[in-house]
Write a protein that binds this DNA or RNA. Structure first.
Lengths: 192, 192
DNA sequence: GCCAATTATTTGAAGCCTAAAGAATTCGGC
DNA sequence: GCCGAATTCTTTAGGCTTCAAATAATTGGC
């Protein structure tokens, strides 16, 4: 079964090679009995390049933050991320909540929490009202350490984005919001 | 030692709480003998939000691509990435080259290559001119499989970015290029 | 109250990833 | 030629991550 977004091209046997397509193409699907369905070598190269650049930016910044967290505080990025989520939730969160927010698997959170409880940064207890649920919070130590790290972290981010003007930042925010919406829609289409 | 980008604020003992700062602030550093250096709760919140949104977009798309690669081709994203690098280099690449291009550690590449050689997708040989160097290439099988996957992969990306206009794409490319440059500069400052 | 479906979490296997240390090789000066 | 420095790659230890399957608790229908 062909996905809907694959464009088809009418191709007669013995037909000559088609001229290169323009970057943006609105060709419609065509089919008949003498037709061979051929996936166009249609130019989605721009989107591909965009994705690679997006990935490069993120990897670059993420690596930098990871390295600095390690150097300055001897903490990993996932641990920091988890603590950041909890810092915003004084009443604690369930593991599922954390998993959704961090966009990682449940099993991943289990291990992460385990290590942070072990080191005294997290407190974990079974919910009174639903014994399936584990509620986790930052301990006093955990909160103090996170606040200390977060303050410096914010300056790193500011520095990493230092060459962007406020207008650039606004514009990026807007376009990335649009990107996120588009990707979510596409992801939804797949699962549907 | 305070990093250069941390703004300082003059604070006299017993001074009243300052008014909240505007989002963009050009306050200069001030110091004297009666001064206590205080890190401003200066608003880098915009940059922080931008970073989180960038990360969200990437994670979202990456997860989607990972899942589809797995479902359709039973291949992991790192394997696909590595093959993509090699597809662009018919004469092969060294492990270091791959490592730099993929922005992952050397040791990581070693293992990745090992598994892909094992599965018959990669060919690996020691360089004639420098016996430290390992040159890897796609095998016939590897190239064929990659091309098959890449064609479909491109349609996924196109679909994920489908709601962006060509102008959006161009603008994002421009802003991300600027972001990348800014981050690289900042990373360089740290190592210097 | 009982049972099926759902939800929350854990476990296990495999793979990804990094930092740091180590081995082999080459290169640059002398 | 020789030695120290730099490079290329591998190894190791530990942690992160996913997926799939298993376990445990709750909920809703009857």
């Amino acid at each position: 079964m062909q996905p809907a977004w694959i464009y088809l091209k009418l191709k007669m046997i013995g037909e000559s090679v088609p001229a290169p397509m323009p970057a943006v193409c609105d060709c419609t699907k065509m089919l008949d009995s003498e037709t061979k369905a051929v996936e166009l070598p249609e130019d989605h190269a721009e989107e591909l390049r965009l994705w690679l650049r997006l990935l490069t930016c993120t990897t670059l910044i993420e690596g930098e933050v990871r390295g600095r967290l390690r150097q300055r505080f001897d903490v990993t990025l996932p641990r920091f991320d988890l603590m950041a989520q909890l810092d915003k939730a004084p009443d604690g969160m369930t593991l599922s909540d954390v998993s959704k927010r961090m966009m990682v698997s449940n099993g991943n959170v289990t291990g992460l929490v385990e290590r942070l409880v072990e080191s005294g940064h997290l407190d974990r207890r079974t919910s009174d009202t639903d014994r399936r649920v584990q509620v986790i919070r930052l301990t006093k130590l955990g909160r103090a350490e996170f606040r200390r790290m977060a303050a410096e972290h914010e300056t790193w981010i500011a520095d990493l984005f230092a060459d962007l003007t406020p207008k650039d930042v606004r514009e990026l925010m807007r376009l990335l919001a649009k990107t996120k919406a588009s990707a979510q829609k596409s992801a939804g289409r797949r699962r549907a």
